[in-house]
């Protein structure tokens, strides 16, 4: 139709478009009875109103996770859902027990931020077998389940390795502060980081310890490492909290200058720290995307009548590297 209209004048083109448009409209109208026949009658639409959602989070004493808990409830309320948020206290048994309670109460779906990728797997399997879809939030589990929404953790590890290499010119001593070792985020971020470091033979990991994703522990562990390591050029805190804690320890030890501090997540304190120059870089995402996407996915699953034992999708939100050069251009989270 396009080709023929070129050989006619403008009026013909208009006419052609009109006829084409009308034909298109007719086709659509002709099809419309079929579509409405396929769709269920309006009164039978699955609703999100009044659905019960159980959310089991890693801990509520981490600023970012606290915000995620609040936003799960807020977003859920927007869909008319009741969201019950439980503090998992970074304990597998506690989280398992909370999952079991939600299964017993027959909630419509469960949001889980697993503190142990293996340890929560039996509970996830149990929920899915009971017909309750599980969406894991940022911390994946080994058991195959309905949905995952989280950061692209492996990519974050790669990004931090590249960022540190760029700032150090490919040469230096690195301290790795790991989080809770059994979590999906820690496993994948560390794996990505180590893989990417192989590209930079001049970068060496001189200390590798766990500080359990905690600011205070990050401070304490790095304080000790500093005493034993005369030369540290960069620190990768596998989450922001540990990087912030470690940076504080370096200030107290009078060794802030000459050490680059990198984290991963993108929480408010970290971005503020980059602006103020207390830390040096982070692999981040817009953190509010996570609770929003989780609740959207939940609403979609419910209206699509997905009921456990299915694999609906894995959404990995791609991270971006933030340094002093671009920190004024990124989204600022509430915490």
């Amino acid at each position: 139709m396009e080709q023929s209209s070129q050989s006619f004048g403008r009026r013909d083109l208009l006419r052609g478009l009109t006829i084409g448009g009308a034909a298109l409209a007719l086709t659509v109208r002709n099809e419309s009875p079929i579509t409405s026949a396929q769709a269920a009658p309006r009164s039978d639409f699955a609703k999100t109103q009044g659905l019960k959602v159980g959310a089991v989070l890693e801990t509520l004493s981490h600023p970012l996770i606290k915000v995620w808990g609040d936003y799960l409830a807020i977003e859920g309320k927007g869909f008319g859902m009741q969201v019950s948020v439980q503090d998992g206290e970074r304990n597998v048994q506690k989280q398992t027990s909370q999952m079991e309670a939600f299964i017993t109460q027959k909630v419509n779906f469960i949001v889980l931020q697993a503190t142990d990728a293996a340890g929560l797997s039996p509970a996830v399997r149990k929920a899915e077998e009971a017909g309750i879809p599980v969406i894991t939030l940022n911390q994946n589990v080994a058991q195959v389940h309905t949905g995952f929404v989280g950061m692209g953790h492996r990519a974050m590890g790669v990004q931090v390795a590249d960022g540190i290499a760029a700032q150090l010119g490919g040469k230096g001593n690195i301290v790795l502060l790991q989080g809770v070792e059994a979590t999906g985020a820690n496993i994948e971020r560390v794996a990505g980081f180590r893989d990417e470091l192989k590209k930079y033979p001049g970068l060496k990991i001189v200390a590798d310890q766990s500080a359990a994703f905690d600011r205070k522990k990050g401070h304490d562990v790095f304080e000790t490492i500093l005493k034993g390591q005369p030369k540290v050029d960069a620190v990768f805190g596998v989450n922001d909290e540990m990087a912030i804690g470690a940076a504080q320890a370096s200030v107290e030890a009078g060794r802030r200058a000459g050490i680059k501090f990198w984290g991963a997540d993108g929480e408010l304190d970290m971005l503020k720290g980059i602006m103020a120059g207390t830390v040096d870089g982070v692999s981040a995402i817009d953190v509010l995307l996570i609770p929003r996407t989780v609740m959207f996915l939940g609403a979609w699953l419910m209206t699509a009548r997905v009921s456990g034992n299915s694999l609906a999708g894995q959404i990995e939100i791609p991270p971006y590297a933030v340094t002093k050069a671009n920190v004024d251009k990124v989204a600022m989270p509430p915490a």
Binding site: R90, N91, V92, Q93, T96, A118, G119, S121, V180, E181
Partner: peptide, 15 residues
């Protein structure tokens, strides 16, 4: 028994 139930040796389980 717990490791069998959780399918892992969870370090914080004993805390």
């Amino acid at each position: 028994v717990l490791a069998s139930r959780l399918q892992t040796g969870a370090p914080e389980a004993g805390l």
